[in-house]
């Protein structure tokens, strides 16, 4: 076995441990010592890189499980990255999948770490031509992301409705010469934010601001536009409209229902 460690250059709280070759029972002691040193240096998140591992013995796996427990006690975690299919099968047979999360690549592991422990939002930006026919694809795309990220079916459906109403509005009431509209979503474990920017004539933009920022009762008595936007108000947690010379930006926040 060869083992080397490095502090992640992306996040100094994470240690990358590269394992190489056969991981035998005779390697347990050295490994345990390395883990203890890492814990003593107050680092509690470890990504075990196992792309070049050829064999894992059951005593070694037991040792790794013990090491993970020590990290978890400190509020940390250890995940395993890059196992080949055969090794993965072997580890699952030994019950390792109940203790460790396996990731195919470091990126996915980092993304999960950020999602779980740092609550930083992930951002997706879309630009599209101002065509109403494109909106169904956009709304399904964004709802699909929410589902993929673990939001409930109900939340995802509501997010789809919000995107639909706001994007349609930006196209229908936007300046006819606008070349594109932009839709941005910021999603984290607890909330979803949607920002839709477009070019709108000033009077339309002010009208929109009135509809969106008026109280619910006023909005519900309006026309179709008012009803759609009133619906958005009902299913979201906050709405902000900002207008300047460059255009109009509508920002909607929706909290995740099971957070």
């Amino acid at each position: 076995m060869r083992i080397s460690q490095q502090v992640s250059r992306h996040d100094e709280r994470i240690i990358l441990l590269h394992f190489d070759g056969d991981l035998n029972a005779s390697d347990c002691e050295a490994t345990s010592k390395i883990f203890q040193e890492i814990i003593d240096s107050k680092k509690y998140f470890i990504v075990a890189l196992m792309e070049n591992v050829t064999f894992v013995s059951s005593p070694f796996l037991g040792e790794l499980m013990g090491c993970k427990l020590r990290l978890v006690e400190k509020g940390g975690n250890m995940v395993v990255v890059g196992l080949n299919y055969d090794l993965r099968e072997r580890l699952i047979q030994m019950g390792a999948d109940k203790i460790f999360q396996f990731y195919p690549d470091t990126h996915t592991a980092y993304n999960h770490y950020h999602w779980e422990y740092t609550q930083s939002a992930q951002v997706v930006s879309i630009t599209l031509p101002p065509k109403l026919q494109s909106v169904p694809a956009v709304r399904r795309f964004i709802a699909g992301i929410a589902k993929q990220k673990g939001y409930t079916a109900r939340d995802s459906f509501r997010i789809e409705t919000i995107v639909d109403e706001i994007a349609n509005n930006a196209i229908e009431h936007g300046d006819s010469s606008q070349p594109e509209i932009s839709v941005e979503l910021r999603i984290d474990r607890k909330k979803f934010e949607l920002l839709v920017r477009n070019k709108t004539l000033m009077d339309k933009a002010n009208q929109l601001k009135c509809v969106l920022e008026a109280n619910k009762e006023t909005a519900q008595t309006g026309d179709t536009r008012g009803r759609g936007l009133a619906l958005v108000k009902l299913i979201s947690n906050s709405i902000n409209v900002s207008i300047d010379k460059s255009g109009t930006e509508v920002k909607i926040t929706k909290m995740r229902e099971d957070s």
């Binding site: 299919y85 993965r88 099968e89 699952i92 047979q93 999948d97 396996f102 195919p104 993929q148």
Partner: peptide, 16 residues
């Protein structure tokens, strides 16, 4: 790519 691993686990289990 997002679900090969879980598919692999289920089918491999059967074969095993």
């Amino acid at each position: 790519a997002t679900n090969v691993e879980s598919t692999l686990d289920q089918v491999t289990k059967l074969i095993k």
